[in-house]
Amino acid sequence: MVTDFNLETTKQENCLVMKTFGYINNIGGQKIVDVFNEHKDNGINNFILNLSESKIVNSIGISYLIEVIEKLNNSNGKLIFTNLDPTIEKTFTIMGLFQFAEKADTVEDAYGLI
């Protein structure tokens, strides 16, 4: 069942893995952007978003993800989504996120795309 939002990060060289827990909504999206900005300003340009523990996302959450994607596109960075629930994957497809971001089955697979 859906819990309150939480975010865990793991840094590896020029890549930050963000693992989300719970509903990616206004609060969740803002938190993702805050953590993203903080590491982007410190020179990180590749990001992996592990959504294995998130089953739902709303359009406000998606707007934050688009913000991240746009910023990375301007700096030739990358955002890779992993461990997508089928419903979220379909949501991202319809909202056009995969036009500018990539997806992988697992975090390990995502490292291979960077």
Binding site: Y23, N25, I27, K55, I56, V57, N58, I60, T87
Partner: peptide, 15 residues
């Protein structure tokens, strides 16, 4: 019921 609630919440942007 959980599935229906999740979808309804997400699609209406309810928190």
């Amino acid at each position: 019921l959980e599935t229906a609630l999740e979808r309804a919440v997400a699609l209406t942007n309810a928190s």
